[in-house]
C-alpha cells in the first residue's frame, strides 16, 4: 500500500518539476509529426503484401513472392499433456513491424509467444511439433543454442519484474552475463535506458533500487534490460495491463519507435491498443489461428464472424 503511494508521489513530483512525461524524452524520441510522416511514407512504399487480403493468412510460409519474414512458423502444434493448446499454426512475422496477437483468455497467445524463444522448454509436460524459423534457422533444431536464441528474442512480461538490484545493475545484468567487456557496459546502459525512454527520469539515480521506480518506469526498465542484450525480436506479453493510461501511452509510443530497429510481437487484451500500435493482427481462438492480416483490415472489415464477434465485444 505504502509503496503504491510513494510511487504516485514520484510521478507527481516529476510533473511538478516540469518533467512532463511526454516531453521529457525529446532527445531520444522523434516528434510525433515525424513519426506520422514516416508512417505515411512507409504505407506508400509497403508493397510486400500488395495482394494480401485480410481473408487469407497474411504472411504465408511458402509464398515465395512475398518479402521474407523474420519469423516463419510452419504447422506448429503444442500440447500440455493432453491439452492441445496450439493447433496447426502457420504464420509469418514481417521484420520491423508490430504484430499483435489477440484473443480471449486461454486461447494460447502466451503459449504461442513463448514458442518463439523456447520458453515452453521449461514446462515439463509440454510437447511441440512443427517448425519455427528465425532468419531461416529452425529454432527447434538440435543444434540451436537456446541461450543465444533468448538473447536474440527478448521478452517483456505483463508484470514488470525488475531484479532486486539497482537500476543500473538491472540493465547491465544481461551484457555482463553475456561477457561484454566492462568498458562497454556504461555506454550500453545509457543507450538502453535512452532506447526505453527512461534515461532522463533515472540518470541521476542510477544507483537507486529498481523498486523505487513507479510501475510504468519499472516496465520501461524491463524494456531497457531487454534492449541491453541487443535482441532482434522483442515479445511483449500484455505489457501495459498493469499500467495507468499515461504510462500505457508511453509504452505504446516506445513500441512504435522501437519497431524501426526491432521486430515486435505484442499480446494484448486491449483492442484499442492493438489497433493503435500494430501493423498486423492475428486473432486466436481455442488454440487456432482464426484470422490474420493487416490491422486496419482486421478491425475495419474482419472476414471471419468469430473475429468480428470478438473485436466488437459481442463474443461468447
Amino acid at each position: 500500500m505504502n509503496a503504491t503511494k510513494s510511487e504516485n508521489a514520484f510521478s507527481f513530483a516529476d510533473t511538478l518539476n516540469g518533467e512532463n512525461e511526454f516531453d521529457s524524452d525529446e532527445d531520444d524520441f522523434e516528434s510525433e509529426n515525424e513519426i506520422e510522416f514516416e508512417n505515411e511514407i512507409e504505407f506508400e512504399n509497403e508493397t510486400e503484401f500488395e495482394n494480401e487480403n485480410s481473408g487469407e493468412p497474411a504472411p504465408s510460409f511458402s509464398t515465395g513472392k512475398v518479402k521474407k519474414k523474420i519469423i516463419e512458423v510452419k504447422d506448429l502444434d503444442l500440447w500440455y499433456g493432453n491439452n492441445h493448446a496450439l493447433k496447426n499454426i502457420s504464420i509469418g512475422i514481417p521484420k520491423n513491424k508490430v504484430f499483435a496477437f489477440i484473443g480471449p483468455s486461454g486461447c494460447g497467445k502466451s503459449t504461442f509467444l513463448r514458442t518463439m524463444n523456447r520458453m515452453n522448454d521449461m514446462i515439463s509436460n509440454c510437447r511441440i511439433e512443427g517448425e519455427i524459423y528465425i532468419d531461416n534457422e529452425n529454432i527447434y533444431a538440435k543444434e540451436t543454442d537456446v541461450n543465444d536464441l533468448r538473447k536474440r528474442v527478448g521478452m517483456v512480461f505483463q508484470k514488470a519484474n525488475p531484479f532486486p538490484m539497482s537500476i543500473y545493475d538491472n540493465v547491465a545484468y544481461g551484457p555482463r552475463i553475456h561477457g561484454v567487456s566492462k568498458k562497454k557496459i556504461p555506454g550500453i546502459v545509457e543507450e538502453s535506458l535512452k532506447g526505453a525512454a527512461l534515461w532522463k527520469e533515472v540518470k541521476d539515480r542510477l544507483k537507486d533500487s529498481a523498486f523505487s521506480l513507479s510501475g510504468g518506469q519499472q516496465q520501461r526498465l524491463c524494456i531497457a534490460r531487454t534492449l541491453a542484450v541487443k535482441p532482434e525480436i522483442i515479445l511483449f506479453d500484455e505489457p501495459c495491463s498493469a499500467l495507468d493510461p499515461i504510462s500505457t501511452r508511453k509504452i505504446e509510443e516506445l513500441i512504435t519507435k522501437l519497431k524501426k530497429e526491432y521486430t515486435i510481437i505484442i499480446v494484448t487484451h486491449n483492442m484499442q491498443q492493438a489497433a493503435r500500435i500494430s501493423d498486423y493482427t492475428a486473432f486466436f481462438l481455442s488454440g487456432e489461428l482464426v484470422e490474420t492480416g493487416k490491422t486496419v483490415h482486421i478491425f475495419e472489415n474482419p472476414q471471419d464472424e468469430r473475429t468480428e464477434g470478438y473485436i466488437t465485444g459481442r463474443f461468447g
Partner: peptide
C-alpha cells in the same frame, strides 16, 4: 463504446 468493424 469505441466501435469497430461494421459498427463503425
Amino acid at each position: 463504446q469505441q466501435p469497430v468493424a461494421k459498427d463503425t
